[in-house]
Design a binder for these strands. Sequence first.
DNA 1: ATTCTAATTCATAATCGTTACGATTTACAA
DNA 2: TTGTAAATCGTAACGATTATGAATTAGAAT
Lengths: 136, 136
Amino acid sequence: MNIEKAWEILKKEGFKKTDKREQILEIFSQTEKYITARDILDVMMAEHPGMSYDTIYRNLSTFVDLGILEETELTGEKHFRMQCEADHHHHHFICMSCGNIKEINYCPMETLQNAIPGYEIENHKFEIYGNCPNCH
Amino acid sequence: MNIEKAWEILKKEGFKKTDKREQILEIFSQTEKYITARDILDVMMAEHPGMSYDTIYRNLSTFVDLGILEETELTGEKHFRMQCEADHHHHHFICMSCGNIKEINYCPMETLQNAIPGYEIENHKFEIYGNCPNCH
DNA sequence: ATTCTAATTCATAATCGTTACGATTTACAA
DNA sequence: TTGTAAATCGTAACGATTATGAATTAGAAT
C-alpha cells in the first residue's frame, strides 16, 4: 500500500491529516521490513524531541484497525509493516538476517479445513522464518 | 509428558529436586490448556504466600529449554503447557472458549518446502484458533 | 551424620513495552 | 474567523518480565 491509498482510507473514515501521521506513513513506505513502535519513535524523536508515546501507539493501532498496516508479534514485541497490496489472502516468509519479507501465495487452511470436522476455525497464524537468497 | 519423565530430564541435566519445581510440574500435569506465569503464581501463592516471581519465571524458562514445556504467545502474553508426548512433529488447534487444545497431525511445511527455492527455512509458526466441538 | 558449596529461592526493585490521562494544541468545517 | 471535535503532548500508571543481592537449601563430599 502507498501513502496516497492510506490517506484515502483515513479521510473516508473521518481522520484528520496531521504531520505525525504523515511521517509515520512515510517511514513505513520506505521499508519492507516489520518494525516496532520503538523504531518509529527513534526516527521521529530525532526531528521532534517532544514526541509522545501516545501518538505513536494510538496511530499504529488505528492504522492496523483500518487495514493500512499489518501487525505481527515477533519475540513478544509487536511489529508492523505496510499492508500488502495483494488482494488475496497470503502469508509471509520473514528473513531472520535482513528482516525482509516475501509473500507466500499459499495458505494451509485450504487443506486443513476438512481434516478436523466439528472444529470451528476462526483464525490462524502461519509464518515462516529463515534466510532469504541474499542472506546465505 | 508426565512428571516422572520431567524429573528424569531435570536430574540428567543436574538440576535439583525442589518443592517449587514439583508443584509447578504438578499444575501443568493437571491441565491440557496453555496457561500463563500468572496462573501459576496465583495457584502457588495460595499455599506459599511468599512465592517469588523469580522462581516461577526462571523455572518456566528452564523447563522450556529442556523441552519439558511448550511455549506460545497468545495475545502478547507467554503461555505454557506440557510438551506433547507425540514423537512426531505436529501443530495445535486452540479453542478460544475453553482453552483446550487438539493436536493437528499435519504440517504445511511439507507442501511449502518446494514452493520457495533459494529460501532457507529455519523455523515456522502454525496455529489454528476457533471453537472446539464442545464450545458451540 | 556433619559439613560444605553451588544451586535455588526470596524479597524487592528495575526494566521494557504499552496504555491511560488531563491539559493543550490543531485541523477543518461552519 | 471562529468553534469544536480530534489529535497531540507531557507524564504517569500499568502489566509482564528480568535482574539483583541476601538468605536458604539440596545433595555431594568428608
